[in-house]
Design a protein around this nucleic acid. Structure first.
Length: 693
DNA sequence: GAGCACTGC
């Protein structure tokens, strides 16, 4: 394979590390310091233990401490321990550290409890949805998902259990991270001493640490100090322990990065010593194509070369298939993992020495005007590209090959827009209202979502009866805010009392909340799986089909082998069981009866319409649908049981709509059109005088 | 007749 694609002076496959000019000595830039920690000290790149006293001092003195720490600097594991030793968790107080992901919260808690020398769940514990491994009396350091802490604020807005709150991985800017930071600054109940002195009287001892792996951390400081109180907060930079990763760029852009990726993998393999290869693609389709290209090359592998073990990694794989990427390659062979963005932060594989970065990623976007969510392929941000490159330097020095030019890299956005700017805000805004934040126009977001999204969410909440004309929560809205489900689904749960079908609606609510219930593989196996699925098919549509599958799963003893032989995902089904039992508790608390409709599907479908009435669609002769709102053309998702069939009444409601190549609707149920009117009139007549046609 | 990036409560 020719090396001419690689810009001279950067590193091409096969060139020696010694000869190559380094474009970036270490792809993780060292952090500039805005700190009252001595800049000289930082320049000397002191190891973390020398920061320790300064760090404790900063937390002690200031309301907000921003910590910039690279991968491996120990901020997540060490910092809470320092605070613990320094006595921040006396008098029954807790030090809480939030993580965006469940696995991170559990694994870090495990590590720290070992370091402290206690059993997990004793002094060190974790709390994630469905799992609370902590002790009310004894736990002092608690790891938690940020979503879980956010939910806790709905119950205890003062967060009175905690003396220190550390929002970790803040650079990822998950919705819940942003909401947590937002309420810490804005809520009338919370305490930011800098911003809100009246609260400082309520919680004078509470401290906040925001920790981030990237430098946009300075913006967190500005956010909390409104840009004018630098002596009230600090940024501390910690040195990471990472091996250097060198970066090579293409000299010329390529039209087909999938093919190019396969070629680069091939030349790395032939010209470099041992070390596994990780390739970033955008989705399953590209992964499969790249694997195909590589397997076609395999027969031409020279006899002297190591063997190649080709692996795919994406979220759609079963647990076992995912675990395969962690198995060390056999002697004399090299692992090549072709992955989605899952390997950028969620899944960490040791032993990777080479990263091949396509430079693209699929992200969710939301168009508030059409309330359409879509999945688009976009160029990655520089921060993402840096993170991807870093995956090559976890266990030794490595090389990252970027399948784009250096000048293209310079034009990439610095960061990915925070998730809060790209999602439907209906649920977040309902929850903020529940926290007493009524005037959303005055709410100071870390990054403001589009005003249109806020308005659309308010409109939806009003239409669903969650807020009144004054914008305040209704009695139902107050309850629904506590429920961990979508507003539509919550409405159904409440209406099930009228339709006497709580038992079934509860199951449907749980099943619609999990993804990939049916496993339909490609090709011949897929056809067999389709046949299996037909055993559960209800002619009314997907909701009742999901209900049938759930009931059968319970009837046959929740067995994983049973799932396997019926094309069902055991993981998804088990999750549905957990969600159902959680939602059941909410129903009991709200006094909603768990009656069965005793096979009366009409009652059940009417209840579905009470939640989905804004998601109506009409069948047209070409097999597509037209939405009731907006009259846009909708295509049925191929996984729907109504994909091949016209609904008898010609009308359906659907669970969600999403734009991919076309606008698709997922999880459909056949209904009578006048059921839509029953709910539609209440809304349309009052607001605009228009009606549902 | 055709397809789901990744989290989280």
């Amino acid at each position: 394979m020719s090396l001419q694609f690689w810009k001279p002076g950067t590193i091409g496959p096969g060139s020696s590390l010694d000869r190559a000019t380094e474009t970036e000595e270490n792809v993780i830039p060292s952090a500039p310091l805005v700190t009252n920690l001595s800049i000289d000290a930082a320049r000397q790149r002191l190891p973390i233990f020398k920061h320790r006293e300064k760090l404790l001092y900063c937390v002690e003195k200031h309301g907000v401490t921003i910590v910039v720490g690279q991968t491996g600097c120990g901020k997540t594991t060490q910092l809470p321990q320092y605070l613990y030793e320094a006595g921040w968790s006396t008098n029954g107080n807790l030090i809480v550290c939030t993580q965006p992901r469940r696995v991170a919260a559990t694994s870090v808690a495990g590590r720290v409890s070992t370091e402290v020398g206690t059993i997990l769940g004793d002094e060190v514990g974790y709390t994630i949805r469905f799992e609370d491994v902590s002790s009310k009396e004894r736990t002092r350091i608690l790891y938690m998902t940020d979503g879980m802490l956010f939910r806790e604020t709905l119950v205890d807005p003062l967060l009175s259990r905690y003396s220190v709150i550390m929002i970790d991985e803040a650079h990822e800017r998950s919705v819940y991270t942003d909401l947590m930071l937002g309420i810490l600054k804005n809520s009338p109940f919370t305490f930011m001493p800098i911003v809100c002195n009246r609260i400082r009287r309520k919680r004078p001892s509470l401290r906040l640490i925001v920790s981030s792996a990237t430098l946009d951390a300075t913006s967190f400081l500005d956010y909390f100090t409104s840009g004018n109180a630098p002596d009230e907060a600090t940024i501390v930079s910690l040195e990471g322990r990472m091996f250097p990763v060198q970066v090579a760029y293409l000299q010329e852009p390529v039209p087909d990065y999938v093919r190019k990726a396969a070629e680069v993998v091939w030349s790395i393999h032939l010209q470099n010593g041992s070390g596994d290869i990780l390739v970033f693609m955008t989705g399953r389709e590209e992964i499969d194509r790249c694997l195909e290209e590589l397997s076609e090359m395999l027969p031409s592998l020279p006899r002297y070369a190591m063997r190649l073990r080709l692996l795919a990694l994406h979220a759609g794989l079963s647990t076992n298939e995912q675990l395969a990427v962690f198995e060390p390659a056999e002697r004399g062979s090299r692992k090549v993992i072709i992955s989605t963005n899952i390997a950028e932060a969620s899944v960490t594989i040791d032993g990777i020495k080479f990263v091949v970065d396509s430079g693209f990623v699929k992200i969710r976007t939301y168009n508030p005007t059409s309330s359409l969510s879509s999945l688009v392929t976009v160029p990655v941000s520089q921060a993402s590209a840096t993170q991807r490159a870093g995956r090559a330097g976890r266990t030794s020095s490595g090389i990252c090959y970027r399948l784009y030019t250096e000048s293209a890299f310079q034009t990439l956005p610095l960061t990915t827009p925070p998730e809060i700017t790209r999602v439907d805000l209906t649920t977040p805004i309902l929850q903020l209202k529940s926290l007493g934040i009524d005037d959303l126009m005055k709410f100071e977001w870390v990054t403001s979502p589009p005003a249109e999204s806020v308005l659309r969410a308010l409109e939806g909440l009003y239409a669903a009866g969650m807020i009144g004309e004054d914008g305040r929560l209704t009695v139902v809205g107050e309850k629904v805010a506590e429920c961990p489900v979508d507003v539509n689904i919550a409405r159904m749960l409440f209406m099930s009392k009228e339709y006497k079908c709580g038992e079934e609606i509860l199951t449907i609510a749980a099943m619609t909340a999990v993804q990939d219930v049916f496993i339909i593989p490609e090709g011949a196996a897929g056809a067999l799986a389709e046949l299996e699925r037909r055993k559960f098919t209800a002619e009314e549509g997907d909701h009742l089909t999901l209900l049938n599958a759930y009931n059968a799963f319970i009837r046959y003893g929740r067995s994983s082998s049973w799932c396997k032989s019926h094309a069902l995902s055991f993981r998804a089904m088990s999750r549905a069981v957990s969600i159902r039992s959680q939602l059941k508790k909410y129903m009991q608390r709200f006094g909603l009866p768990l009656e069965s409709c005793e096979g009366d599907a009409k009652r059940l479908r009417k209840c579905l319409v009470s939640g989905y009435w804004r998601n109506g669609a009409r069948w047209v002769a070409d097999g597509t649908y037209r939405s009731v709102r907006g009259n846009t053309t909708l295509y049925v998702h191929p996984h729907s049981v109504l994909f091949t069939r016209k609904p008898r009444s010609g009308w359906v409601v659907f669970h969600e709509m999403e734009e991919t190549k076309k606008t698709q609707i997922r999880i459909l149920t056949e209904i009578e059109p006048d059921w839509l009117l029953e709910y539609g009139h209440k809304y349309y007549d009052k607001r605009t005088g228009a009606s549902v046609q």
